[in-house]
Amino acid sequence: MSHNHGADSAPPSRRSVVKGAAWAVPAVVVAGAAPTVAASSGPLSFTGGACKLPGNANDIFKGYVFELTAVNTLGPGPTTGVTVITNVRINGVPVTGYQVVVKSGTTCSCATCTPPLSTVCNTFCTPDGEVQRIFVYTNSQANSQNTSFSLDYQRYECSTCAAIDPTPVSISSGTLSTPPATGGGGSCNIQGAVPPPPLNAACA
């Protein structure tokens, strides 16, 4: 009995300690990876919302609409941001006609800054500390139910027109389902996607 009692109270072997430590390592790795995922959204990011705009649904855009979120963090860099969206692609194919619309969130104007490649179709302004819903309507439609969208964007400080992003930033939506949008909304998963805005002829 006394022998068994002594065995029960003996300190754990070195092998047991090492084995226990090995099981603890993955938990530390997983916990450390979470902030990287959260930080990957960036100041302009896809929400996952995308819809097809059939030709019989409207007489303006016959393509797609997809949704992004624009975030201008409060403080410097930029205080008032001007964003230019370029190189819009559907399934890797460049889109020639598209129009960027600020759907919700406070907007602004910046008459003092006209960045390179900026047009009335691809540029929007975001006040300091603001979050906006951004819709991009395209006039190009791929023959596919599962579609991926990608684009480049570059941000500028309104007051100086200095580039915040030294070079354009590329982002991609990954493969998305694109349910059709109709006059009543259809099965489109983007609230407010239809009716589309009046088409600016320069964006066709």
Rank of each mutant, 00 (worst) to 15 (best):
residue 43 P to E: 09
residue 131 V to I: 10
residue 118 S to N: 13
residue 140 S to C: 01
residue 121 C to S: 11
residue 78 P to I: 00
residue 105 G to D: 06
residue 96 T to G: 04
residue 51 C to S: 12
residue 67 E to Y: 03
residue 23 W to H: 13
residue 27 A to N: 07
residue 77 G to H: 08
residue 50 A to V: 05
residue 29 V to E: 01
residue 48 G to Y: 12
residue 101 V to I: 13
residue 84 V to I: 11
residue 140 S to N: 13
residue 129 G to N: 07
residue 70 A to T: 10
residue 108 C to S: 13
residue 53 L to C: 10
residue 136 V to D: 00
residue 122 N to C: 03
residue 35 P to G: 07
residue 128 D to K: 02
residue 136 V to G: 04
residue 42 G to C: 04
residue 110 C to H: 07
residue 141 Q to S: 11
residue 76 P to G: 05
residue 119 T to K: 07
residue 117 L to Q: 15
residue 94 P to K: 11
residue 130 E to T: 13
residue 47 T to N: 11
residue 52 K to W: 10
residue 42 G to E: 02
residue 110 C to A: 13
residue 125 C to R: 15
residue 25 V to D: 05
residue 88 V to Q: 03
residue 37 V to K: 03
residue 38 A to M: 03
residue 132 Q to M: 05
residue 127 P to C: 05
residue 120 V to Q: 13
residue 59 D to H: 15
residue 40 S to M: 08
residue 154 Q to L: 02
residue 30 V to Y: 02
residue 113 C to T: 06
residue 97 G to I: 08
residue 157 E to N: 15
residue 119 T to M: 04
residue 120 V to A: 15
residue 124 F to A: 07
residue 158 C to D: 04
residue 143 N to Q: 05
residue 107 T to Y: 01
residue 131 V to C: 02
residue 85 I to Y: 03
residue 91 N to E: 01
residue 27 A to F: 01
residue 49 G to K: 14
residue 135 F to T: 13
residue 133 R to P: 00
residue 85 I to V: 14
residue 100 V to S: 13
residue 149 F to K: 10
residue 109 S to D: 12
residue 94 P to T: 14
residue 137 Y to W: 12
residue 39 A to W: 07
residue 144 S to N: 10
residue 49 G to Q: 12
residue 64 Y to M: 04
residue 65 V to Y: 11
residue 43 P to Y: 02
residue 31 A to F: 15
residue 118 S to V: 01
residue 137 Y to T: 08
residue 38 A to L: 11
residue 146 N to S: 05
residue 105 G to W: 13
residue 108 C to H: 02
residue 69 T to S: 07
residue 146 N to Q: 15
residue 149 F to G: 06
residue 156 Y to A: 04
residue 101 V to S: 07
residue 52 K to G: 07
residue 59 D to M: 14
residue 139 N to L: 06
residue 147 T to G: 01
residue 46 F to C: 09
residue 63 G to Q: 10
residue 148 S to R: 14
residue 100 V to H: 06
residue 24 A to F: 10
residue 103 K to I: 00
residue 154 Q to T: 01
residue 132 Q to W: 06
residue 129 G to P: 03
residue 137 Y to P: 04
residue 74 L to R: 11
residue 109 S to G: 08
residue 102 V to C: 06
residue 115 P to D: 12
residue 89 R to P: 01
residue 92 G to A: 06
residue 158 C to K: 11
residue 60 I to F: 09
residue 69 T to W: 08
residue 23 W to R: 15
residue 41 S to L: 02
residue 110 C to L: 01
residue 142 A to T: 12
residue 126 T to W: 03
residue 24 A to H: 10
residue 103 K to T: 11
residue 73 T to M: 08
residue 29 V to I: 15
residue 24 A to L: 14
residue 89 R to V: 04
residue 83 T to F: 01
residue 89 R to T: 11
residue 70 A to K: 07
residue 138 T to L: 05
residue 84 V to Y: 00
residue 132 Q to L: 02
residue 69 T to H: 09
residue 65 V to Q: 09
residue 107 T to S: 05
residue 76 P to V: 01
residue 45 S to T: 06
residue 152 D to I: 07
residue 40 S to C: 05
residue 56 N to L: 13
residue 35 P to Y: 08
residue 42 G to Q: 03
residue 159 S to Y: 10
residue 41 S to N: 12
residue 63 G to L: 14
residue 42 G to Y: 05
residue 119 T to H: 14
residue 147 T to V: 15
residue 78 P to D: 00
residue 67 E to A: 07
residue 101 V to R: 12
residue 29 V to G: 05
residue 67 E to G: 10
residue 55 G to R: 15
residue 40 S to F: 02
residue 38 A to G: 02
residue 101 V to N: 14
residue 23 W to Y: 14
residue 111 A to K: 11
residue 122 N to K: 09
